[in-house]
């Protein structure tokens, strides 16, 4: 318990000290996770909506695969991405290993199935009605898609927040492909893991608290957004 108490004190101290390093770690975390969430969303929202309103062969099988991928362990994703982008891997020429781009790739792969699955679930509920309405009012395909996104915005937004939460809190993938390099690829979760292995519990707790506060802010905004409806 002493550690948790000291961690809280230390986290306040850290944040007030305006220490460049901790802010850089926090911002890199946000940058990597937000970017991968946004890239994932661009892929996952249309795919999830189409899966929710269209009938096509092997749909049930695809959905089962999608649900499985929603629970992919980050270390597995990290390992696979690592094998592809390492210097001797097939994509070694792109020189992505141990960069923030590598972390974004890994998290995008991790988060895309999650957002797709959640958007699919949301669309399955009300998508058919919205599609029919759009059609009876004379919307073309693009206009129908825009209307679906607009009308399903709450579940889409919730899906993105879940995806972001997964990205910002995972450590396995970014540790492997990013390498936890100071000033380059050190993010909040890898810092926590490293500090724990160094036995510096208070620092780990301090960053853990920052992570929680950020989650709280994001979720509070989501809550306001939903309450407004």
């Amino acid at each position: 318990m002493r550690e948790i108490y000291e961690g809280i004190i230390k986290s306040i101290e850290l944040l007030l000290s305006l220490d460049g390093e901790i802010y850089r770690i926090i911002l890199l975390s946000l940058y990597v996770s937000l970017t991968s969430t946004l890239i994932s969303a661009l892929i996952a929202i249309p795919v999830g909506i189409v899966m929710g309103i269209k009938k096509f062969p092997f749909k049930q099988g695809m959905i089962r695969v999608l649900y499985t991928f929603m629970g992919l362990p980050p270390v597995i994703v990290g390992l696979v991405v690592y094998l592809f982008i390492r210097r001797s891997g097939p994509l070694g020429n792109l020189e992505l290993i141990f960069t923030s781009a590598a972390m974004i790739i890994a998290q995008t792969l991790l988060v895309t199935p999650i957002i797709t699955g959640l958007v699919y679930n949301g669309t399955k509920e009300g998508g058919e009605k919205i599609k029919n309405l759009a059609k009876t009012l004379g919307a073309n395909k693009t206009q129908t898609m825009i209307l679906l996104i607009k009308e399903l915005r709450i579940s889409i937004f919730a899906a993105m927040v879940s995806g972001y939460g997964r990205a910002v809190s995972e450590v396995g993938a970014v540790m492997i492909v990013g390498g936890n390099i100071r000033h380059h690829t050190r993010v909040m979760t890898t810092t926590i893991a490293m500090n724990h292995s160094m036995g510096q519990t208070d620092m780990a707790i301090a960053i853990g608290i920052v992570l929680l506060i950020l989650s709280f802010i994001v979720n509070s905004l989501l809550y306001r957004f939903q309450q407004g409806e």
């Binding site: 850089r24 946000l30 937000l34 946004l38 923030s100 957004f225 309450q227 407004g228």
Partner: peptide, 30 residues
């Protein structure tokens, strides 16, 4: 109390500020 519009624009502003800030830090610093 927050109105929905306010919450929405606040969220938008926060997210974009964060993204821009972190882009700046994440990319240019090294």
């Amino acid at each position: 109390m927050f109105s929905r519009k306010k919450a929405k624009s606040l969220l938008f502003i926060m997210l974009s500020t964060l993204l821009i800030l972190s882009l700046a830090i994440g990319c240019t610093n090294p």
